[in-house]
């Protein structure tokens, strides 16, 4: 657990530092309470403190890093697919983009049965249409291209 400790420790310290810096221009209103910056500064201080402890723990740790990082790329690719999905929703709408994304994800995870590749995306879209849009009256984004 050496690398994760050090990484999360450093991120925690940086995050605490950055937010502390941002609190510097918070105004102190003339009221009885502690002001806008007081508690966020405490939180930042704590983040820095815990970050330092984690960092020390990480440096002292000499155990082997047992976690293989080989598989991360599969998770990263799926994140990219979902990111693309989210980015196109405003343009091509929820239904088309969802069907495309589910299809891509299925294909990506080595599903080759034509029945599955067609029925799962369509079934999912139908489910959202019936439950969310019709039953629960959620307004599902249609996309600017179809307006």
């Amino acid at each position: 657990m050496k690398v994760p400790h050090i990484t999360s420790g450093i991120i925690s310290i940086c995050l605490g530092g950055l937010f502390y810096y941002l609190t510097l221009d918070f105004p102190k209103l003339n009221t009885a309470d502690t002001g806008a910056a007081f508690l966020p500064r405490i939180y930042c201080g704590l983040l820095i403190l815990f970050g330092i402890i984690l960092l020390i723990q990480g440096i002292r740790d000499h155990s082997k890093n047992e976690e293989s990082s080989q598989t991360v790329r599969y998770a990263l690719i799926s994140m990219v697919i979902v990111l693309a999905y989210i980015l196109v929703i405003p343009y091509i709408g929820f239904y088309v983009s969802t069907a495309l994304t589910i299809f891509s994800l299925l294909f990506f995870s080595k599903v080759r049965k034509a029945v599955t590749l067609v029925s799962v995306p369509l079934g999912a879209v139908l489910f959202v249409f019936l439950v969310f849009e019709k039953l629960l009256k959620v307004s599902i984004p249609m996309g600017s291209l179809f307006l």
């Binding site: 929703i89 969802t98 589910i102 995870s109 999912a124 984004p141």
Partner: peptide
Amino acid sequence: TILTPLILMLCVVGAYSLGNNY
């Protein structure tokens, strides 16, 4: 392989329907 894409879709539609907010 089938459940995972469906969960990701539910995450997106669920987050959106909370406040109809992209």
